[in-house]
Write a protein that binds this DNA or RNA. Sequence first.
DNA 1: GTGAATGTTAACAG
DNA 2: CCTGTTAACATTCA
Length: 242
Amino acid sequence: MPEGPSILHLKHQLQPFKGKVVKHAGGYGDMPTEWLNGKKLLDIKTWGKHLLLIFNNGTVRVHLGLFGDVLINERKKVNRSFFLEFATGEINGYVVKAAKLDKPLNEIYDWRTDILSPQFKKAWIKTLLKKQAAKTIDDVLMDQNIFTGVGNKIRNEALYRAAIHPLSIVGKIPPVKITRLINEVVNYARIFYQQLEKDGVNDFFEIYQQNYAADGSEVTMKVLPKTKRKIFFSEHRQQLYV
DNA sequence: GTGAATGTTAACAG
DNA sequence: CCTGTTAACATTCA
């Protein structure tokens, strides 16, 4: 379920619980949950793929990983890894990882890198990219401290739309194309989010898991050696900078 | 039954 | 100690 837009969508769906008091918190996860009982959910924020549930005595960071799911007022047969039950309604996390954060959020998170935050700052990303000149762009796009919220779908779609080959070396890509890439990342993340809000699904791909790209060119699929993740690209359209 | 999938991190090897 | 690779995750879908 999770890439940045999915988490933002989840935050939107959880709005009815804002200001409500937790009757009972629990789950089989490592995090203790007693400190949540009787507490009011003050606010809900996101930082990329992190869902942040804010209370006056701490914040719960929920991460969905690859298999995680959060259901609202619904349950599955399997046990919940983390849940919050309210007087009316409940939030049920399956295979999610919850952790308690005690420090002020501004000391932990920098929203300038969050591709879906109003505080997202293109110029700051360009500054960060200078230190990544020797790496390949596909790796850097998945770095959550630089492109916070980008997942494999957004990575593939943004590279295709910006016409950059995924194995290009960051330092060799012309600045104009880097700018275009950052724009496409944000642009596709918004498409992703709007589709979720409208239909509840995200299936609008120009290249990801396609045989032919939107422009009709043939798609090449490659499994990355380190991460074992799949990248999809068009040799015809995407320029390789090495 | 099998394989693959939107992710991260602990554990391990070298 | 640093760096890279693997396994694991109370899953789910085709």
